[in-house]
Computed example of a mutant assay.
Amino acid sequence: MLFSFSSCKKETKAAGLTIKDGVLMVGMEIGYPPFEYFDTDGKTPVGFDVQLANALAGKLGLKVEIVDTAWDGIFAGVDTSKYDCIMSAVTFTSERAEKFNFTKPYIGNAQALVLLKGSSVKARTPEELGGLGVAYQAETTSDIYMTKLAEEKNLKFTAYEYDKVMNCFDDLKSGRADAIVCDSLVAVDYVNAADSPFEIVWLGEADEVFAVCLKKGNDALTAKLNEALDALFAEGTMLKISKDIFSVDMVSSVR
């Protein structure tokens, strides 16, 4: 599904660098609040990455076309040129960097352990989740983290893997899952919501960063996006987006 946004900029600084002339096509998994999700009308994409995409495209004189893509196919989509880049809370890892280009980071992240308030679950770290039902989004760094923990610590738990992080919170609330491991930035958004039934009981080291992901070898567009990203940080736009979404500065730590 495609969603188009117009930019107020007219001067095109990325001519010939995008799949469609004058358009930055962006792959997103729309279902990952607060980074990308549908507004109350059920059809308008909103969130941190949506604002970022529009701001970056504006710097390049492009309009944005968002391509809603399931997470398990999002990297294949950029690899086969279905869109120019991915802006969908993509964590930079050395393994991914072997296969894809990445811009400079735009926000930091950590893993978080989320429980229901008043839960009888005593675990306060992921290492204590043995014997419990743990929900996380499949093929994400949370999945990688829990898989590695299971292998290295011989931790045995029931894994509930979902294609969207929203389903993790639904099942924790319903009682099907005992705990969630997810990105801290997502956890904060759910915990800070009015009348939230959730609480964060553990935060990992803030050693992850999100960046824009591009097809391997697309160095020219990567460079242009880095220039635009630098400008957004310098002029305060990144801070403005952060405060709009999180109410606090969550971006300056990566600079």
Score class of each variant (00 low, 15 high):
residue 1 M to E: 14
residue 3 F to D: 03
residue 5 F to M: 11
residue 12 T to S: 15
residue 13 K to N: 06
residue 17 L to S: 04
residue 26 V to W: 02
residue 29 E to S: 13
residue 35 F to V: 01
residue 38 F to R: 05
residue 41 D to S: 10
residue 43 K to D: 03
residue 48 F to G: 10
residue 48 F to P: 12
residue 48 F to T: 01
residue 53 A to Q: 01
residue 55 A to S: 14
residue 61 G to P: 01
residue 62 L to K: 09
residue 64 V to S: 05
residue 64 V to L: 03
residue 67 V to M: 12
residue 74 I to K: 02
residue 74 I to H: 02
residue 74 I to W: 01
residue 75 F to N: 00
residue 76 A to P: 08
residue 94 S to I: 01
residue 96 R to D: 09
residue 97 A to D: 13
residue 101 N to R: 02
residue 101 N to P: 02
residue 103 T to I: 03
residue 105 P to T: 00
residue 107 I to N: 10
residue 108 G to C: 09
residue 108 G to S: 15
residue 109 N to G: 07
residue 121 V to H: 06
residue 122 K to C: 09
residue 123 A to V: 06
residue 125 T to N: 10
residue 130 G to D: 03
residue 133 G to L: 02
residue 138 A to K: 02
residue 144 I to S: 15
residue 144 I to C: 10
residue 149 L to K: 02
residue 154 N to T: 07
residue 161 E to A: 14
residue 162 Y to H: 12
residue 162 Y to Q: 13
residue 168 C to P: 08
residue 175 G to E: 12
residue 179 A to Y: 01
residue 180 I to S: 00
residue 181 V to P: 02
residue 182 C to V: 09
residue 186 V to D: 03
residue 186 V to Q: 14
residue 186 V to K: 08
residue 197 P to C: 05
residue 198 F to R: 06
residue 199 E to Q: 15
residue 204 G to W: 05
residue 204 G to D: 13
residue 208 E to L: 13
residue 211 A to N: 06
residue 213 C to M: 15
residue 219 D to W: 05
residue 221 L to E: 04
residue 222 T to C: 15
residue 222 T to E: 06
residue 223 A to K: 12
residue 226 N to E: 09
residue 232 L to T: 00
residue 236 G to E: 13
residue 238 M to N: 00
residue 243 K to F: 00
residue 248 V to Q: 04
residue 248 V to T: 14
residue 249 D to S: 08
residue 254 V to K: 00
